[in-house]
């Protein structure tokens, strides 16, 4: 077993483009759950419509990437409104059920046969990033040190993705340190109390849902650009659960919780994968085959969620005192 190789591969994943994309989506989820207390179990739905903003915009209508990105944002906004109007006036659990159901229904819709002229059905859309790659200012080649290496295109995606992460962090930080953020956090604690003080809770929740959803949508669009092609089945509900695990691992309601969580979890997941894989190649795990690794990783995420809630509900950088105070 080559430990250094496992470590460097895991590190590469932890700072790579996919991790950055998950960070962006997790910042959105942090807006929803961490600050506002909205139970969004369908963040993957926002990523789906965002990715397909690019997929349909570029792949079907041949729009420029900028126009397609606008389409992504618009789709995420519309989805947030559609989800929010029926459920934000109801108890929190209704939003939870609706979001998970709507995200899954959207995936089925996007992959359905009748949608094929638009979305490409189960085959999705390909060749989405020509314009993005053409705009890459980094000379081609490989960059990095000690096994943590990226190609020019990966570096370009990373640059853009992490820059967007920085913008999103700045935005949430500014918002959460303003009176707006105070109302949002108040709603998380007790929305009736906030309502009794004359604030229109519904509007605030809607704004939060849209903002976090748009961040999810942009993450999806970046995913489409990064992979250059997308299929609906990438957007399984598991993605949302990964995001939850990441956010809780990092620490909800902390600006950097949503950054740290995805990076650490990606590191752990890749290390988990690579270790199992190398154990398999040396024949140390005769009862498993290669296909089981993915399944075991999902189970591992599940276990991580349970253990986190039980033993460290505040996450890596959360505030334990705040957690304890929340006992109602």
């Amino acid at each position: 077993m080559d430990f250094w190789n496992i470590i460097s591969t895991s590190l590469t994943t932890a700072i790579g483009p996919i991790a950055a994309i998950y960070v962006l989506a997790a910042i959105g989820l942090n807006m929803h759950f961490g600050y506002t207390g909205l139970l969004n179990f369908g963040q993957v739905g926002f990523m789906l419509v965002g990715a397909y903003g690019v997929g349909v915009g570029v792949g079907t209508f041949g729009l420029s990437l900028w126009a397609a990105l606008l389409l992504s944002v618009a789709c995420a906004t519309v989805l947030a409104l559609l989800l929010g109007i029926p459920t934000l006036r109801l108890r929190a659990d209704y939003l939870a059920i609706s979001t998970i159901a709507v995200a899954e229904a959207l995936r089925l819709l996007y992959r359905a046969e009748f949608a094929r002229p638009l979305t490409g059905g189960v085959y999705g859309r390909q060749s989405l990033a020509a314009g993005f790659i053409a705009a890459n200012p980094i000379p081609s080649g490989r960059y990095g040190v000690a096994g943590v290496e990226f190609s020019a295109n990966q570096l370009w995606t990373m640059l853009v993705a992490w820059a967007l992460v920085a913008v999103a962090l700045l935005l949430t930080w500014a918002l959460m340190h303003s009176p707006w953020g105070r109302v949002i956090k108040g709603i998380r604690e007790d929305e009736d109390a906030v309502r009794s003080l004359g604030k229109d809770v519904f509007v605030y929740k809607m704004q939060s849902l849209v903002l976090g959803g748009v961040l999810g949508g942009v993450a999806g669009a970046l995913l489409a650009i990064h992979q250059q092609n997308i299929t609906p089945d990438q957007f399984m509900p598991q993605v949302t659960f990964y995001l939850w695990a990441m956010l809780l691992l990092g620490g909800a309601a902390r600006t950097f919780g949503a950054v740290l969580g995805p990076m650490v979890l990606w590191f752990l997941l890749t290390a988990f994968d690579e270790t199992l894989r190398s154990l398999l190649t040396i024949g140390a795990l005769p009862f498993l085959d290669g296909g089981d690794i993915g399944a075991l990783r999902h189970a591992f995420v599940g276990l991580a969620l349970v253990l986190l809630i039980v033993y460290r509900p505040q996450g890596l950088i959360g505030n334990r005192k705040e957690m304890l105070v929340n006992v109602k």
Partner: peptide
């Protein structure tokens, strides 16, 4: 919220302090 803005503000039987603020 609109009732409150009219100037009629209520409190609750089970106190609703916003605990983590």
């Amino acid at each position: 919220h609109r009732v409150a803005r009219q100037g009629m503000v209520r409190t609750f039987q089970l106190t609703k302090a916003l605990t983590r603020l």
